[in-house]
Structure formats: structure tokens, C-alpha cells
């Protein structure tokens, strides 16, 4: 499935070069990804993080289509996922609970 990933701040410095080849211009770094999914198992944020060779420790806020999400949140085709680095943990975490799927 195809998804769009927006990478903010210095998080792009942690990404392997191969993911940045098809990035768009400007801020944030936006990359389109084709993800290999197994139809039996939902594809979750944590799978995406692993695919991007990142760790949860690199991250603070995660949004799927604008919804504040946790690592277990499912990703669907066409979703836009926004990833913020650890040092951008401002404000939002106090007001919102992370959405998760089982």
C-alpha cells in the first residue's frame, strides 16, 4: 500500500539515504512509500518505524491523518503519517491521549 510520510525537524538525519532519494522540496521532508503488507496482520506505526530504520526513542509526536497516535495504531492505504523527533515534544502530549488499535 502507498502512504505519505512527513518527517519533521532533525529526524531526517536519522533516516537512511535510500528513503530520502524521492523526497519533495522544502519543509517538512515528505516521502512517498510503498509498504509491503501482509493482509492477515494489520500494518502498525511500529512496523513503519522499523521499516524506516528508526526507533521509538527517536520520536515524540506521531499523527495519522491529524490524529495523535501511538505505536500500535494501524496504518491504511493513502494515510498521511507525520513523525516528529524526540526534541519536539512540546505541549501536545499533555492535552491528548495517544490513539491505539489492538
Amino acid at each position: 500500500m502507498k502512504v505519505r510520510v512527513k518527517i519533521f525537524g532533525n529526524l531526517k538525519d536519522h533516516l537512511p539515504e535510500e528513503f530520502l532519494n524521492n523526497r519533495g522540496p522544502g519543509i517538512p521532508t515528505i516521502i512517498s512509500l510503498e509498504l509491503n503488507t501482509n493482509s492477515k496482520k494489520p500494518y502498525k506505526i511500529k512496523d513503519l518505524i522499523e521499516h524506516l530504520e528508526l526507533t521509538p526513542e527517536n520520536l515524540s509526536h506521531i499523527f495519522i491523518n491529524g490524529v495523535y497516535s501511538g505505536l500500535k495504531k494501524n496504518i491504511a492505504a493513502g494515510d498521511t503519517i507525520a513523525l516528529f523527533p524526540k526534541d519536539m515534544a512540546l505541549l501536545y502530549k499533555w492535552y491528548f491521549k495517544k490513539e491505539e488499535d489492538k
Binding site: 519533521f8 525537524g9 516528529f84 505541549l91
Partner: peptide
């Protein structure tokens, strides 16, 4: 202004 992208992303 680091908040611009965060709050925008949160709609």
C-alpha cells in the same frame, strides 16, 4: 515557532 508544524499537523 517549532509549534507551527506540530499544531498544524494536529489540525
Amino acid at each position: 515557532s517549532v509549534l507551527v508544524n506540530i499544531i498544524n499537523e494536529a489540525r
